[in-house]
Simulated assay, not measured.
Amino acid sequence: MGASLRILKSRGIAVLRYWDHFTVQQGEDTLAAYHAHPDAAPGQKHLVDFSGVTSFDPEYVGVLALQAKTADIVLPEGFETILVMYAPNPTGLDMAVMVRKSWEHVPAVIPLIAETKQQAIEYLGQKENDLSLFFDTEDI
């Protein structure tokens, strides 16, 4: 199980990448790293790369609890955000669908699923030829 986090402060985008087996605890650890990061800011757009996820715990209750913690940290009152999940394979897509469902009742979050890197960048409102800016991240 692995995770990485990178914040592109000038673009207002947090990039998270997960690989191998994903657990809710891993999501909580990544959220804590985001919260402690000096460049984290309310309302940042989020790009979550699930392309390397090989399996995950389908703990929907745990995902909902994680989503509630995330909302408290990422979305103070009055802020909105776009959550783009890059999911080019069946496992990543299953995970992205589960996460999207957990956010559907939160009007301040627009959860989108992208099946290509280019589509993910476009959803974020970026026009970039060098996709490595968004998809090369450091391990946390």
Results as ranks from 00 to 15, higher is better:
81 T>L: 07
27 G>W: 00
97 V>E: 11
21 H>I: 02
66 L>K: 10
100 R>Y: 00
119 Q>G: 13
40 A>P: 03
9 K>W: 00
58 P>F: 07
49 D>Y: 00
14 A>T: 04
66 L>D: 13
20 D>K: 10
135 F>N: 09
82 I>M: 12
50 F>R: 02
94 D>F: 03
121 I>D: 01
30 T>W: 04
57 D>H: 08
6 R>W: 01
129 N>W: 01
133 L>G: 13
22 F>S: 08
139 D>H: 10
8 L>F: 06
18 Y>F: 14
89 N>F: 02
100 R>C: 09
98 M>T: 15
117 K>W: 02
82 I>R: 15
115 E>F: 00
37 H>G: 07
30 T>L: 12
47 L>Y: 03
28 E>Q: 13
26 Q>F: 00
137 T>R: 07
91 T>W: 00
75 L>M: 09
12 G>N: 08
74 V>F: 09
89 N>S: 15
63 V>S: 09
90 P>Q: 05
33 A>V: 06
54 T>A: 12
50 F>D: 04
130 D>K: 07
34 Y>T: 11
51 S>H: 05
86 Y>V: 05
109 V>Y: 01
3 A>M: 10
2 G>H: 07
31 L>E: 07
110 I>P: 03
88 P>G: 12
133 L>F: 07
62 G>S: 05
95 M>Y: 07
63 V>M: 12
30 T>I: 06
139 D>T: 15
40 A>W: 03
112 L>Y: 02
47 L>P: 04
1 M>L: 10
139 D>G: 14
56 F>D: 09
42 P>Q: 06
95 M>W: 02
119 Q>T: 08
4 S>N: 08
57 D>E: 12
84 V>P: 02
102 S>W: 02
78 G>S: 06
126 Q>E: 09
45 K>N: 06
120 A>W: 00
14 A>Y: 01
86 Y>C: 11
90 P>I: 02
78 G>T: 01
119 Q>R: 06
89 N>W: 01
139 D>N: 15
38 P>H: 05
131 L>G: 12
45 K>H: 08
21 H>F: 04
22 F>Q: 07
92 G>H: 02
109 V>D: 08
133 L>N: 09
79 F>Y: 13
130 D>P: 06
92 G>I: 05
61 V>W: 03
130 D>S: 10
139 D>K: 15
7 I>T: 07
12 G>E: 04
16 L>S: 10
62 G>I: 03
48 V>S: 11
28 E>C: 14
60 Y>D: 14
1 M>S: 12
68 A>H: 11
122 E>C: 06
43 G>E: 05
137 T>S: 12
104 E>C: 10
123 Y>N: 13
69 K>N: 12
123 Y>E: 08
136 D>H: 15
24 V>I: 05
15 V>E: 01
139 D>E: 15
111 P>I: 03
94 D>T: 14
43 G>R: 03
7 I>E: 04
20 D>Q: 09
102 S>H: 01
94 D>A: 12
69 K>Q: 14
134 F>K: 10
136 D>Y: 08
84 V>F: 00
117 K>D: 02
38 P>Y: 00
119 Q>C: 08
99 V>D: 09
100 R>I: 07
114 A>D: 02
113 I>W: 01
66 L>V: 05
93 L>F: 07
